[in-house]
């Protein structure tokens, strides 16, 4: 349900903080790892969960995500299994808004209508389709609307004002502002033009703005205070999961999210 997204963002705003959207690749690094990792994100203070469904050819993603997508697929994760995984997450008490992120071909293979209905019924609140720009997303955003699910488009620093307006018209929930021209992956510093670009988007829409790609440190999030409503941290979490033995993973991930949200010390 898309209202849950608005409520979560409103709570963060009331607390005068930038909301944190934590990312997990479904079925990575083991088929049964996702539920415990999602609980760790929640325990660390994440406001929403972005759940990436793996695709064999993730062309907007850097090496970290390529590896996690491939490994999840090798371990047997499929898009067909995703509604069941979302139900498991909900049953395990993960109640924060859940946004599904994937590429178009797995959605088409599942069947566009059935996919949106099934993940919505399982408890998803929104959908991000990386390679479906506004020109091609009419059908998908329409299905999301019917299922009361947010359709979250991406904007980039290269998006013109016309394109920002076009994407805003289809958007619900929030808009995903890609921070730099590039693929996903950890970056040391934020782009110096980010403020101006976010202002440009802000002038065109009242929807909340979430910034992603390269966000990996508390200082990035602090720098976005007052400029963005939320940040998406993805590759940094996946890197950490990859580098940590399973028995320590939940604690390490929770600790990292606590640092990002300002609840814990570095």
């Amino acid at each position: 349900m898309s209202e849950r997204i608005g409520e979560a963002l409103a709570r963060a705003k009331a607390d005068d903080r930038v909301a944190l959207i934590g990312y997990l690749t479904a079925g990575f690094p083991e088929p049964d790892a996702t539920v415990e990792l999602a609980k760790a994100l929640v325990a660390g203070g994440a406001d929403m969960l972005e759940l990436g469904l793996p695709f064999s050819d993730p062309l907007a993603d850097g090496v970290t995500m390529q590896r996690s997508n491939l490994k999840a697929l090798e371990q047997g994760m499929t898009v067909a299994r995703s509604p069941e995984l979302i139900r498991e997450l909900r049953a395990a008490g993960v109640v924060i808004p859940l946004i599904v992120m994937t590429y178009y071909n797995p959605i088409l293979a599942y069947g566009q209508d059935g996919f949106v209905q099934d993940i919505a019924a399982a408890g998803a609140d929104g959908l991000i389709a990386v390679d479906v720009p506004p020109e091609e997303s009419e059908a998908l955003s329409g299905r999301c609307r019917e299922a009361s699910m947010a359709f979250v488009p991406l904007l980039a620093p290269t998006s013109t004002d016309e394109r920002i307006a076009l994407a805003s018209r289809q958007a619900s929930g929030f808009i995903y502002c890609v921070s730099v021209a590039g693929v996903t992956g950890v970056r040391r510093a934020l782009s110096s033009d980010l403020g101006e670009y976010l202002n440009r988007v802000r002038r065109q829409t009242d929807l909340p703005l979430a910034v992603g790609f390269g966000i990996s440190r508390r200082e990035h999030i602090e720098a976005l205070h007052g400029k963005a409503d939320a940040v998406i941290v993805a590759s940094a979490i996946v890197d950490l999961i990859e580098a940590t033995p399973r028995e320590e993973r939940e604690e390490v991930v929770r600790g990292f999210v606590e640092v990002l949200t300002g609840r814990g010390k570095v």
Binding site: E135, T158, A167
Partner: peptide, 12 residues
């Protein structure tokens, strides 16, 4: 056909 690419490329 069509154009199914990340938004970053659409302007170019």
């Amino acid at each position: 056909g069509g154009r199914f690419v990340p938004e970053t490329l659409m302007t170019a």
